[in-house]
Nucleic acid binder design. Structure first.
Lengths: 211, 211
DNA sequence: ATGGGGTGGATAGTGCTACTATCCAGTGAA
DNA sequence: TTCACTGGATAGTAGCACTATCCACCCCAT
C-alpha cells in the first residue's frame, strides 16, 4: 500500500478513505494483513484525483461514476453519459413563471439548433436557471450566439478527446479531463480577454491589479 | 432589521453574520438597541448574495471586493479590476519545467494576440496550470482557437454588461453577474452540444441518461 | 404603565465535506 | 526474533458558511 501511495502521490490515509467509501476496489488479499495492489488501482486513483482536483466533483458524484464503471453490464456509451452528467451542477427546477419561461426558451433553442439532447440532461436545468437569472437582469439576448459558438468548439475540437473504446477507467478519465480542461481554459481566456478589452476601451492600463 | 431580512430574503442571523464580518456596513444607530437600515443595505445584500450564490465566491473574496467598494479613494476602474480578479481561482505557480513551458506558451499567446493583460492577473496562472495539464495529456493544440473565440464573445457581447459609471455597488454587481452568468451559460451549452454531437457521431440516442 | 416581542452584540454550536489520526492485533522480511 | 508496516475500525480535524442561544434593553400596543 505504501508503494501504491508513493506511486500515485496520494496519502495512505486517503487511500484507506477511498477504499472505505468504495471508490477504490480492494486489493487482492494475500494474507490477513496484506493485500496486493496493481495498475488498475493506480489508474483508478488517477481517475479519482482527476475528478476531485481538476473537475472539483464531490465524492458522491465520483462514486456514481465509479459505480457505473464497475457495472460491466452498462454499455460503454451509457458509462460515458453517466460520467458526463456527473460533471454538470445539479440544479433543481423552481416552480415559478420565470423558470417556465426560461425553460421554454431553452427548449426552443435546442430544438431550433437541431440538437439531440435527452430530456433529463442536467445541463438543461443548469442553463434554464442561468437564462432565468439573465432575463431578470435584462441580459441574455446573445444566448444563440453562445450556443453556436459552443457547437463549433465541440465539433471542431472537443469531441476528439472523447474516446470510443478501450479501458473503461481510461476512457472516463479522458472524457472528464477533456471536458473540464477545455472548459477551464475557455473560462480563463474569457477573463483575460475581458481585462484586455476593458483596457482597450476604457483606458490604457486595464484593470489595474490589486496591490 | 426584520424588515431588511424580509425585503432581502436573507435570514436575520445571516445578516448579523455579514455585519460581524464587515461585509455589510452597520445601520444608523437610532437607539442603544435599534438601528435603521436603508436601500444601500438592501443593495449591498443583493451584491453579497449574487457573489456567494451565483458566483460561488468564498466570503473572503467577497470581503476583498467590499473593502474595495468602500475605499472611495480607489478609482472606479481599479474597483472593477479588484472585483474581476476576485472571480478567478487563485492558482499558485509550481516551480516545474512543465509549468515554465506552459507559462511561456501562455505569454506568447497573449503577446501574439496583442492582448493587454497585467502581469499579475490571476487568470494567467489559471490558464498556465490548465495548459500544463493539457500538455501532459497531449491535448491543447486548439488553445488559439479558444482564445480567438473568447475574444469575439467578449468584444461582441460581454463588455456591454460592464457599466462605467454610477453607483459602485450596482456596477460591481453587474460586472460580477455578467461575467459569471455568461460563463455559466457557455459551460452548460458546451455540455449540451457535447451530448448532442456525441449522439450524432456515435449512435442515435446520445448519452443515455442514467436511470 | 406594562408586558411581550423584537434589537444589537457576544459567544458558542451546527452541518457538511474531505480528509487525518490513532489504535489494534497480525504479519513478513531482516 | 524483532519491528516497521498492514488492513480494518473508530474517532477526530479543519475549514467554511452559517445558525442558535443568551442577554439586557427598549419600543409600543394595550
Amino acid at each position: 500500500m505504501s508503494e501504491l501511495s508513493a506511486r500515485s502521490g496520494v496519502a495512505i490515509p486517503t487511500i484507506k478513505y477511498y477504499l472505505r467509501e468504495g471508490l477504490l476496489h480492494p486489493g487482492e488479499q494475500v494474507a490477513a494483513t496484506r493485500a496486493e495492489y496493481d495498475d488498475s488501482h493506480l489508474r483508478r486513483l488517477r481517475l479519482i484525483r482527476a475528478m476531485v482536483e481538476v473537475g472539483r466533483l464531490p465524492i458522491a458524484a465520483v462514486k456514481k461514476v465509479v459505480t457505473a464503471i464497475e457495472d460491466e453490464s452498462l454499455p460503454f456509451h451509457q458509462l460515458l453519459g453517466t460520467a458526463h452528467y456527473a460533471l454538470s451542477p445539479q440544479v433543481e427546477p423552481e416552480p415559478t413563471p420565470e423558470w417556465e419561461a426560461a425553460k421554454a426558451e431553452v427548449d426552443a433553442l435546442i430544438a431550433d439548433l437541431g440538437w439531440q439532447v435527452a430530456p433529463g440532461a442536467p445541463a438543461r436545468n443548469d442553463l434554464t436557471q442561468t437564462v432565468a437569472r439573465m432575463r431578470r437582469l435584462g441580459m441574455g439576448d446573445a444566448i444563440r450566439t453562445y450556443a453556436e459558438t459552443a457547437e463549433r468548439l465541440v465539433r471542431e475540437v472537443e469531441l476528439d478527446t472523447i474516446p470510443v473504446g478501450g479501458d473503461r477507467d481510461a476512457a472516463v478519465e479522458a472524457l472528464v479531463l477533456g471536458t473540464v480542461l477545455y472548459g477551464r481554459a475557455l473560462e480563463a481566456l474569457r477573463r483575460l480577454a475581458q481585462e484586455s478589452e476593458s483596457a482597450r476601451r476604457f483606458r490604457g492600463d486595464g484593470f489595474s491589479p490589486a496591490p
